[in-house]
Design a protein around this nucleic acid. Structure first.
Length: 419
RNA sequence: GCGCCUGUAGCUCAGCCGGUAGUAGCGCCAGAUUGUGGUUCUGGAUGUCAUGGGUUCGAAUCCCAUCAGGCGCCCCA
């Protein structure tokens, strides 16, 4: 048997209705925040990600699906989408368009990691990028947007974590200070953290190793190394979040795995997700455009929500079947009734009614099917009904049945459902 | 990529001190007289016991490998 490859999966009904629900709620939220959709290719030149995300990051160094195209170009399935969006921004000179570029995307990303709950090799991200402003007001609005999407989707119990990772200059000073602080105690750390202490001291900070906790708490905080600009920026972001009544925790040890982040970074966690507990991650990336070759600065900030994880947090509390209701099941009896039913179905569908026409010959079977499909109403359509010009409309929940004329079907269904 | 656990009907699982799969629950199909579902009753179907190899007279049961999933690490959405 041919099966979906490891780390990929089929999203089937009724679960697909939950995905559609999430996406339509999300699109509506983007609309009122004046975000517009961008669709970029799902594969790009490998160098885009190497330069954008950072060649030393885990994503680029060991998680990408990369191959050589026939002309020898190295191609990579996108592991994330911010680099592509910035590439498109530069390529199409979007800086020449008036105003802030507020873009969103929904689509699949690919990373070759060991699959587990909430972690897939093909996964879906809902992302937003606000490009062209370095104002902290945008940071606060972007965070609000992420929270708003989650809230509208029905996610409860999430936690917002924020931090500032500074600009490259202050981060460099901090990294140096960390190396210095780690040097004398390095031998007491776990092997993983010993390695990180040399290669990437920032990563030591969010290690979950309980044995290293005592040492980690003694390390200096990045906030001591932020320069004036980064400090006031962060203070303003917090002020604007406070004004909105947003709950958050400042986590000086929150570091993120992509090299391009500057200043504000944030994460939204959810308890239902297990080890992969981040439902959203994001941050500011003021230098990214220039590192991708833009001659004009394009400071920006964005986030991405893990759609798989978002769906996971709400799936149990949603009645998936109720998201895709069947209004009417027509049970025609006999060949003439079949023609009649088809025409009636067309008419009702044009009026927006969700209609299914039975292919069961026996009424009993048809009603059984209607019941299994969770139809709200069944319409019995046999010779008697055709002759009389009225149909038997049966409410499947109450069992109540009444005769309605052709023109009265929609109002009869509506009237009863309102009652 | 690493460690631990798991893998039996469509689903949830029983069987696991080796003797050749279960009247199991749910679901599915059919029936309980002609055009009335949901509850009930009766009958029925379905498994290369994840895959491949090994031990054995004999393996779903023991061993190995592979694949897949879960949990954790790593990392992140």
């Amino acid at each position: 048997m041919i099966k979906a490859i490891r780390g990929t999966r089929d999203i089937l009904p009724p679960s697909s209705a939950v995905w559609n629900h999430v996406e339509s709620v999300t699109r509506e939220t983007f609309r009122v925040f004046n975000y517009h959709e961008i669709r970029t290719p799902i594969f790009e030149e490998t160098t885009l990600f190497a330069r954008g995300v950072g060649a030393e990051t885990d994503i680029v160094s060991k998680e990408m699906y990369t191959w050589d195209d026939r002309d020898g170009t190295s191609i990579t399935l996108r592991p994330e989408n911010t680099a592509s969006v910035i590439r498109a921004y530069i390529e199409h000179r979007l800086d020449q368009i008036t105003g802030l570029k507020k873009l969103f995307y929904i689509g699949p990303m690919f990373r070759r990691e060991r699959p587990q709950k909430g972690r897939y090799r093909q996964f879906f991200q809902i992302g937003a990028e606000a490009i062209g402003s370095d104002s902290p007001a945008i940071d606060a609005e972007v965070i609000e947007l992420a929270l708003e999407i989650l809230e509208r989707c029905g996610v409860t119990g999430s936690r917002l974590l924020i931090n500032s990772v500074g600009d490259p200059e202050s981060r460099q000073r901090y990294t140096d200070a960390l190396r210095e602080a780690l040097e004398p105690v390095k031998d007491q750390l776990s092997p993983d953290n010993q390695r990180r202490a040399v290669t990437n001291p920032l990563r030591v900070l969010d290690s979950k190793d309980p044995g290293d906790e005592a040492i980690i708490t003694t390390l200096p905080s990045i906030h001591e190394f932020l320069n004036e600009e980064c400090r006031t920026h962060f203070a303003r972001v917090r002020e604007l979040l406070d004004a909105r009544g947003v709950d958050y925790e400042v986590r000086p040890r929150l570091v993120r795995g992509l090299d391009y982040y500057t200043k504000t970074t944030f994460e939204i966690l959810h308890g239902a997700l297990g080890a992969q507990n981040a439902v959203c991650g994001g941050g500011r990336y003021d230098g990214l455009a220039e590192s991708l070759g833009s001659r004009v600065p394009a400071p920006g900030i964005g986030f991405s929500i893990g759609e798989d994880r978002l769906v996971m947090t709400i799936e149990e509390s949603l009645n998936a079947a109720a998201l895709a209701p069947l209004d009417l099941f027509i049970a025609p009896l006999g060949a003439d009734a079949g023609v009649h039913a088809a025409l009636l179905a067309s008419e009702l569908r044009r009026a927006g009614v969700v209609v299914e026409v039975s292919t069961d010959a026996k009424l009993k079977r048809a009603l059984e099917t209607a019941n299994k499909l969770n139809a709200r109403y069944s319409l019995i359509l046999g010779d008697n009904e055709i002759a009389a010009g009225v149909y038997a409309l049966k409410n499947m929940a109450t069992g109540e049945q009444k005769n309605v004329a052709r023109g009265g079907i929609v109002s009869a269904m509506r009237g009863e459902s309102d009652a």
